[in-house]
Every structure is written in structure tokens, then in C-alpha cells.
Design a binder for these strands. Sequence first.
DNA 1: ATTGCTGCAAACTCTTTGCAAGTTC
DNA 2: GAACTTGCAAAGAGTTTGCAGCAAT
Lengths: 146, 146
Amino acid sequence: MNSTDYKTELRERGLKVTPQRLAVLEAVNVLHDHPTADEVGSFIRKMYPNIATGTVYKTLETLVDKDIIIRVKTDRDIMRYDAVTKLHHHLYCKDSGQIKDYFDDELNRILKDYFKKNKIKKFRIEEIKLQITGSFKGKSKKEVKL
Amino acid sequence: MNSTDYKTELRERGLKVTPQRLAVLEAVNVLHDHPTADEVGSFIRKMYPNIATGTVYKTLETLVDKDIIIRVKTDRDIMRYDAVTKLHHHLYCKDSGQIKDYFDDELNRILKDYFKKNKIKKFRIEEIKLQITGSFKGKSKKEVKL
DNA sequence: ATTGCTGCAAACTCTTTGCAAGTTC
DNA sequence: GAACTTGCAAAGAGTTTGCAGCAAT
């Protein structure tokens, strides 16, 4: 995704295009490993040292509100964000703490079919996401590329 | 589960049995709707007004460390805890914010089979949990019993 | 007696807020 | 120029920590 796309995306959702919003949007896309607000801020400050912490937080929440990015659930404390809004699941590595995206349309279909046949009473399902916990094999405990 | 069971559980994990630990363990079991640390503290103080906030936090984390309770992932801010350690999934209600347990052994079997056939490369799966997001039908937006 | 646990209060981290000044459309 | 957005600094919520005194084994 490039800068023009970001502008279009913001305008389509009725948001004004500002350098700060473009920077946050770019950061969440580039730091595709589910960055925290803090990581987004640090990344942006390399190029654009003046962005305020409060602005980073406000902007992230605005983008979540408008469904441009999503929040990622974590076991512990801090909030993480994800630029990928297409349905996908997450691999949580116990050793390194990293969270990787996992795409699998066949699995999505199986789940959808299963719940079509086995309705949960009194509940309307909107989305089903898997949290797959485990550990990456082989490589160092620090970082694994998928 | 009764008080004797709690004591046994603590001892088995090498923890000393104290009134505070028993109270926290009981609270998480009784408040089965995934209480926060704050809710656990308030509940305990009804019977036992002297427990310190720090103790509640420390005790909850100790119990998580020893796999006696688990943390529940939420989209936002605060940590929640769950006394049910048997594999189960969660229903997240968008309207009320409540999180309900969902047990389904058939589904667990399907998932297990699926990943036996479709291994994720370089990843050893330990646990698969579903986050099912949606909303409870009918009833008030406030509270739904399952 | 030894080791571990608790209470307390202070400190910390992450996040939100209020508002004046500055931008975008 | 109207409406929205930002920077800043202060406040807020939730959680953690250090340590003296106390309790469990």
C-alpha cells in the first residue's frame, strides 16, 4: 500500500488527511508484527521527530474506530495493532512472545460450516478467530520469519 | 470445588496455604464471569476486609504461574482471570462486553484433526482457542445467562 | 528456625484528557 | 472560516515493587 492509498482510505472514512495520520498508518503497515503504540511512536520519530505521544494514541484509536486497523488481543498488559483487516488468525509464541498472522481460508470455511450446523443458542456470531498458542521450532528464541 | 480442594491444589503446586490465597482462589471460582483483579479484591473484602490490593495482584499472578488459573485475553485494557483451566473457548459480546465460556469437544476434535493434516510449518501447537465475537440475541444488553 | 507471604505506600507504565494553537477542507 | 486535529503536559487507571513485619511449615 502506498501513500496515495492511505490518503484515499482516510478520506473514504471521512477523516482529514494529516501528516500524523499518514505516518501512523504507514508505521502500522511497515511494522507488520503487531506493534504497540510505543513502537509506532518510535518508528515515526525516526523520520518525523515531533509527533506527540497523545497523538499516536488518539490516531490509533481513530483508525480502529473507522475499521482501518484492528486491535490485537494479548495475554498481557499492552495493546497491539494490526493493519491487516482481512480475516486471519494468530500464532502466539510462548518463548519469544511474538504474534504472527496465520491465513487459512479452508479453515475459515470449516469453521463457518461447523457453526452453521451447530448454532450457539442466543448468540449471533460475527467473527471467529483462533488463538493458536505454542512455539516456533528450530530457530533462535528471538525472532522467526514466517 | 471446596476449601479442602483449594488447599490440596495449592500444596501440590508447592505454595503455602494462606487465607489470602484461599480467598482469591475462591473468588475466581465463584465470580465465574472472568473477573478483573479489582472485582476479585472487592469480592474478598466483603468477608475479609483487610486484604491488600498488592496481595490480590501478586496472588493472581502466582496462581497463573502455577497453572491454577488462566489469564483471559481481552481487546481492551484490563486483565481478566478464569478458574476454568479445561480447554474451552470464549464468546465476546460486542454489546455488553461480557465474555462467556463455550465448551465444545466435537469442535476441539475437528480442530485437532485439521491441524494434524495441515501442519503449520516451524510451529509446534500447544493449544487452540477460539475467540468468537458477536452479540447475544434477545435479552437485555446488560446481562445474559448461558 | 527458616522460608515464604502479606500489608502498605510509593513508584511505574500505559493510556487518556483538556485545551490553546495550528491545519485541513 | 468552520470544523477538525495536534502538541503538550497533567491526570488517570491499572499494576508492580520494596521492604519490614508476620505467618506457615
